[in-house]
Design a binder for these strands. Structure first.
Length: 429
RNA sequence: GGAGAGGUGGCAGAGUGGUUGAAUGCGCACGAUUCGAAAUCGUGUUUACGUUCAUAGCGUAACGAGGGUUCGAAUCCCUCCCUCUCCGCCA
């Protein structure tokens, strides 16, 4: 959420930064609303103050020996005058606060200055590459073909469709095991080598948590919502429950930075992407992800984004998968992010790099929504944290990348060395 | 699922209608004392919003959440959420 004080102080500057995302922020409308709010606030608070005073008077009079009825009679006129105006005025102020909040909740995070301008995917800027895409001396097959014909295990979309319809998958045998191995491998790497604390969280969350990270109120159509008397949603990413661990908390600065690694399934309705990636397990309604989340002091967030991205890259390096890192342009960034690096892994069958991780800094955008704060050592006052997260990595897409990059002419797939301990020493699938 | 008890400040724990944002204790911060420390003494110690140059002052709100009664609610009533104990069931 935008900082309303900054908006008041320097609205032009905020609007200009938002304009880089292709968004027109109606500053005049905001200012008019805020001016009205200010007026309503001051008036309603004044009336409340007067009313409080009258109540005290009754108390004082009763104490000094007057009967309750007589005491009430003394202030009746004053109260009548206040009440004639107060209820409506308080309601007006409340309504204006809600209007302003609703307005602000719908505005995305302004990008950092260093983020490149652009309209969409094509304007993202490559930052670095790692690894050489392998030259194949046979015809490359995609993961769907490989997964359908492997001797030791199967990737089966028909079985999944029977159960749940399109965009689900069933894995059997060595592929199911590889999938599980990837999760363990990633979580171990981040907790043992990169200093993240492993955490297990609910997969169903309430609307408050989703509002905190920015999925609500604007993107409800992307979520799966439960039937039933309680309002619960399946998490679209571990970011939601894990970041919200700090919601409404004032963290002891000695505990910072908080760094969590969390494996969860993720559920996305993929509304609005019906035609995209319909083949294979690139884009599913359900997938596993190992997520990295950091909560840091504001001055540390830029460095934290670099290191977090590096931690995600380390997974690909350990697996020997070629990738590149791009910084997303203003037009391609997520709603809550102020700077995002996408890591894209080489997919041989598509002859291009595809997103396998997205690492973002949110500045204080999420923490303001969820009131995730820490006590500043100098001022002693609670101040907003900065939040970050990144996939480390998307497990299904990692499995796709391994099948395709490590495929052999005979239809088998070589197991990357780093994973062999997790597959009972197995060298090929 | 059945029966009962609760949710108050960093923690413990008072407060069942009146100036109580909240006693007391602990913790914490600063100061005094001390060679230094402990002990002791003193002072201070929730948050949000508004106003403001101001993290000064002032105002408003908040005792799980929301609603109600009342001149006045932490205290009374209703709904919801959560925690604990016992019984049942269960991976």
């Amino acid at each position: 959420m935008l900082d309303i004080r900054e908006l008041r102080r320097d609205g032009e500057q905020v609007a200009a930064r938002l304009a880089r995302r292709g968004l027109t922020f109606d500053l005049a409308a905001f200012r008019a609303l805020d001016a009205e709010r200010k007026q309503a606030d001051m008036r309603s608070q004044e009336l409340q103050s007067q009313r409080k005073q009258s109540s005290r008077e009754v108390g004082d009079l009763v104490k000094s020996g007057l009967s309750v009825d007589d005491a009430k009679a003394r202030v009746a006129d004053a109260l009548a005058k206040i009440d004639a105006e107060m209820a409506a005025e308080v309601a007006r102020a409340e309504a204006l606060h809600q209007q302003i909040e609703a307005l602000l909740l719908g505005v995305p995070n302004p990008p950092l200055d260093e983020v490149p301008d652009g309209k969409g995917e094509e304007d993202n800027v490559e930052v670095r590459r790692w690894g050489q895409p392998r030259q194949f001396d046979f015809t490359v097959r995609d993961h769907v073909d490989i997964g359908a014909s492997l001797a030791s295990g199967q990737l089966n979309f028909d079985l999944a469709a029977k159960l749940s319809g399109a965009r689900f998958s069933v894995l059997t045998g060595s592929l199911a095991r590889l999938h599980r191995a990837l999760i363990d491998f990633m979580v171990d790497l981040h907790s043992d080598k990169h200093g993240y604390e492993e955490v297990y969280v609910p997969y169903l969350v309430g609307p408050e948590a989703l509002r905190g990270t920015g999925q609500l109120p604007k993107f409800e159509q992307d979520l799966f919502k439960m039937q039933g008397e309680r309002e619960l949603y399946l998490i679209p990413t571990a970011e939601v429950p894990v970041t919200n661990l700090a919601a409404n908390e004032i963290i002891d600065p000695a505990r910072l930075p908080l760094r969590y690694v969390c494996h969860t399934p993720c559920f996305r309705s993929e509304a609005g992407s019906h035609g995209r990636d319909t083949r294979g397990m690139i884009r599913q309604h359900q997938f596993e992800k190992v997520e990295l989340v950091q909560l840091v002091r504001p001055e540390d967030s830029l460095a934290a984004l670099e290191s977090l991205t590096g931690h995600a890259e380390a997974v690909l390096q350990a697996l020997g998968l070629p990738y590149r890192v791009v910084v997303l342009c203003t037009g391609d960034m997520g709603f809550s992010s102020c700077k995002t690096y996408d890591i894209e892994v080489w997919i041989p069958s598509q002859n291009c790099y595809r997103e396998i991780s997205s690492c973002s800094s949110f500045g204080d955008f999420q923490s303001r929504r969820m009131q995730a704060r820490y006590r500043h050592p100098d001022s002693g006052k609670p101040e907003l944290l900065h939040t970050l997260n990144g996939s480390g990595l998307a497990v299904g897409r990692t499995l796709v990348a391994i099948l395709e990059n490590y495929q052999n002419a005979d239809g088998s797939v070589t197991v990357p060395e780093a994973l062999r301990p997790y597959l009972g020493g197995r060298e090929t699938l």
